[in-house]
Design a protein around this nucleic acid. Structure first.
Lengths: 116, 116
DNA sequence: CAAAAATGTGCGCGAATCGAAAACATATAT
DNA sequence: ATATATGTTTTCGATTCGCGCACATTTTTG
């Protein structure tokens, strides 16, 4: 269930002990999570996500969320940031237009090439 | 901990019973989640997120995720889609450049205006 | 309006499982 | 080679999960 923990921990070069310490739980408890014979409480799960600076969904290995840009306008689901500054609706709208046009153009290019 | 459940359920106009049925659990079990005196297992939590077509993080009320665009290049965290088509790295890179430049320009504009 | 059905709310219990301590195995460092 | 750190498993008391059941409240139906 929590198979991604191993990767997350090792990419940080932390031992189980160190990870457990940071989470303020016993190493055997943490080990239980990694080995899969224990499940953390929701609070612990949340703490783990915070520690690894990732989402709970990612830790749970849930089918990676795909964020549809057109839907994220005016919705408070996920906020996008660039260089730490959150993306304004205007920037998002510009981007959508920008990319749609680029996609249209690349279609036409292909079409022309085929014709030639 | 799971205070968002009420909203999610009611926005669908489901009774507790109906929700529990869809989740294939007892209504008293589901009620426990909503009232906050019970926590679902990770599997149940995941099922709930699926049922409500939302993320576990959202259900847990975790500080809304912000996705840093520069970090999402080459990372398998969340995939962005536009009009149902997933965003290529190239499109993302272009957008980052595009927006950075726009931001730079708007700074300068302000500067010029101040000078004038 | 009254009866019936559905829904919400809470209790109690057996079963499941949590979290930690401890012991042991294995690896790393001195 | 010995000590120290890390990984892994077992054990156990305490917690709490999930459900059935009962009752209150609301909604539906005739």
């Amino acid at each position: 269930m929590l198979s991604r923990l191993v990767t997350l921990r090792k990419s940080r070069k932390w031992s189980m002990q160190e990870t457990a310490d940071r989470l303020e739980i016993a190493k055997s408890t943490y080990a239980g999570y990694e080995y899969g014979y224990r499940e953390p409480s929701l609070q612990a799960l949340s703490d783990i996500a915070d520690l690894f600076e990732t989402s709970v969904d990612h830790i749970l290995g849930r089918s990676e969320q795909s964020l549809e840009l057109t839907k994220s306008i005016d919705e408070e689901s996920i906020s996008l940031t660039l260089d730490g500054v959150s993306l304004s609706n205007e920037e998002l709208i510009d981007f959508i237009a920008f990319t749609r046009i680029k996609r249209e153009l690349s279609k036409k290019e292909t079409f022309i090439k085929k014709e030639a």
